[in-house]
């Protein structure tokens, strides 16, 4: 065995880079979730114009998380970020029942996008810390998630504020990174 190949073996394999897209309506909690993942302060958050990006190391992966603003005016720009996405995370404000229909429509449109076809999707039923939050099961039913057949999917209840449930969701993401159906 040559010296070079020994050196090569010693050098540990670099983390696999994963591109994660964080989408959802405005005020769903995407930026809070992103900051929580990066262990940053979440008390001074402002509405996102454009996008934020952060890299997080997790379970041998380098997760590059793209948090895109959810305001209606900038939703047409979402498609500029679809290319090469490994996992889609869709965030829902579980306490904002008035907008369940709107958020369901946006999700359905995303699942129809050709560039996102077969991409695993994790739905975070966020804001479970609020008393008025709908349980994940109710949201799954309302959004007809059981009809999704062209990809792996999961719904996870969480609170980005207290971080409860967030790690469980991310574990699912890491397990299913390579489950993209061609």
């Amino acid at each position: 065995m040559g010296l070079l190949s020994i050196l090569r073996k010693l050098k540990s394999a670099p983390d696999q880079e994963v591109r994660i897209l964080l989408l959802g309506l405005d005020n769903a909690g995407k930026t809070t979730l992103l900051k929580q993942l990066a262990s940053e302060d979440i008390s001074h958050i402002t509405p996102t114009q454009g996008f934020n990006i952060k890299s997080v190391q997790s379970q041998g992966f380098k997760l590059n998380v793209w948090d895109i603003g959810g305001q209606r005016k900038i939703r047409p720009y979402w498609r500029n970020y679809f290319e090469n996405t490994d996992v889609l995370i869709y965030v829902i404000d579980s306490a904002d029942r008035k907008r369940f229909e709107e958020t369901g429509q946006e999700l359905a449109e995303l699942l129809d996008e050709e560039k996102l076809s077969g991409v695993p999707v994790l739905i975070f039923a966020n804001k479970q810390d609020l008393l008025t939050a709908a349980p994940a099961s109710e949201i799954a039913e309302g959004l007809n998630l059981h009809t999704i057949r062209d990809r792996v999917w999961q719904i996870q209840s969480c609170s980005a504020l207290t971080s409860e449930g967030v790690q469980d969701g991310m574990n699912w993401v890491c397990k299913n990174v390579n489950a993209k159906k061609k």
């Binding site: 405005d26 005020n27 008390s43 001074h44 958050i45 402002t46 959810g70 305001q71 209606r72 005016k73």
Partner: peptide
């Protein structure tokens, strides 16, 4: 409300951490 640059139809959720 979006005419003066709020995100949706109720500004109350836009003030957030500020």
């Amino acid at each position: 409300w979006s005419d003066i640059g709020f995100q949706g139809d109720d500004p109350k959720t836009d003030f957030r951490g500020m």
